[in-house]
Amino acid sequence: MDTIHITDLEAAINHWRARKPSVDSALAPEVAALAEVYALMAFFHEDEADALRMPAAARAAWLAWYATTPDAPCIAICSTSQGDAVCKGCGRTEHEVQDWTAMSPYAKRAAWRRITREGTAWRFNRYADRVRNGP
């Protein structure tokens, strides 16, 4: 199931709030659409929403935000090609590295959340400056 984590929903809301600040206390359509989903998640104490069951406007706003995020966590140091099950450079599994281009935006964000939460990949320590400057 393709899901959107609440932290990504918050990031998308903040993205749209910065791009389209409210005028006369009226929310931008993207913010309003995402806020409705966010409110329901908060009410029901859920941390993920089914992307395919979201209103089309909310899903479109999230996907537009997603398009502004970095695609792959790769830092051009791939240890899966050397037989590691998890890449030391970016933190993705061998399966994720191989299938990245075919993965849905939702699956990619789930992988990003996992590797960021773990924080063990070289992109977060020894090569953090390489990430900032690009591979």
Rank of each mutant, 00 (worst) to 15 (best):
residue 4 I to K: 02
residue 6 I to Q: 10
residue 17 R to A: 07
residue 4 I to S: 03
residue 14 N to S: 07
residue 30 E to A: 11
residue 10 E to Q: 06
residue 13 I to L: 12
residue 25 S to P: 00
residue 8 D to V: 01
residue 15 H to A: 04
residue 24 D to Y: 14
residue 12 A to S: 14
residue 6 I to S: 08
residue 29 P to K: 05
residue 17 R to T: 08
residue 5 H to V: 01
residue 5 H to R: 12
residue 19 R to Y: 08
residue 12 A to Q: 11
residue 32 A to D: 13
residue 28 A to F: 00
residue 28 A to S: 11
residue 14 N to K: 07
residue 9 L to N: 06
residue 12 A to N: 05
residue 8 D to P: 05
residue 6 I to V: 13
residue 17 R to H: 04
residue 14 N to F: 11
residue 9 L to K: 03
residue 28 A to C: 09
residue 2 D to R: 13
residue 12 A to E: 13
residue 31 V to C: 07
residue 13 I to M: 13
residue 6 I to C: 05
residue 18 A to G: 02
residue 22 S to V: 03
residue 16 W to M: 10
residue 32 A to F: 00
residue 13 I to K: 05
residue 3 T to Q: 14
residue 28 A to R: 01
residue 3 T to C: 06
residue 19 R to A: 15
residue 32 A to R: 08
residue 32 A to E: 11
residue 25 S to F: 14
residue 19 R to E: 14
residue 25 S to Y: 12
residue 32 A to C: 07
residue 22 S to E: 11
residue 12 A to D: 10
residue 32 A to N: 07
residue 27 L to Y: 01
residue 15 H to D: 12
residue 28 A to D: 10
residue 21 P to D: 02
residue 30 E to M: 03
residue 31 V to K: 00
residue 19 R to N: 09
residue 28 A to W: 00
residue 25 S to A: 02
residue 14 N to G: 09
residue 19 R to K: 14
